[in-house]
Amino acid sequence: MSGHGAEVLWQGTPLRLLPGGAVLWPAGRTLFVADLHLGKARVFQGRGVPVPEGDDAPDLARLAGICHRWEVARVAVLGDLVHGPGSWNPKLEEALERSLPPERLLVRGNHDRSGGDPPDTLGFRVVAEGAALGPFVLRHAPRIGSGGPPHLAGHLHPVFSLRGAGDRLRIPCFVLGPDYLVLPAWGTFTGGQAWIPRPEERIYLDVREDGGSVVAIRPASPAGP
């Protein structure tokens, strides 16, 4: 059971929400992830802030593991693959080359603009906001309540805050709205934005500990149109 995530129907398409913050589209053998913010510690170091490097390798190893396990043929990154200037380096390129399936797509996020596109050798197809992939529209920054086409997005790093007796936990979450699906940030060294759910949203907690599980915290409303 552990690590299988949760099956959902969104916009009539079966998807699987996977612990760690990825969305699997089984029919397209495609994995969606967002906000890896690779090389973030390096950006800090370059500016004189002593943050140790280390999270990149395990973050990519997790990604490689999922791609392998679910036999993914294509990875689509919904923005912020890297964090900023100085993020790209040979070690990172090598690790990406090792970790990802051959077909790679990147929706250019705000951090990618300052960090730079991946080198051509990595073979990413880099697209702008609103590009289409199969039945999906892909964005980095979601447009909530805009009435636009249904889309998958990242950017917001949603986390859900749980309060109980004496405890407070912040857990990354997937947000399934009527015409948007926001992914949590894949990167470990990323912050989160407390998400206050709207009535029409379904929230799935992305519990990463103990093998990982994805937990729905409100009853699934009838699937979207």
Partner: peptide
Amino acid sequence: RWIDRVTRMA
């Protein structure tokens, strides 16, 4: 354990 807390609070 932590995971129990999460599901219980959920």
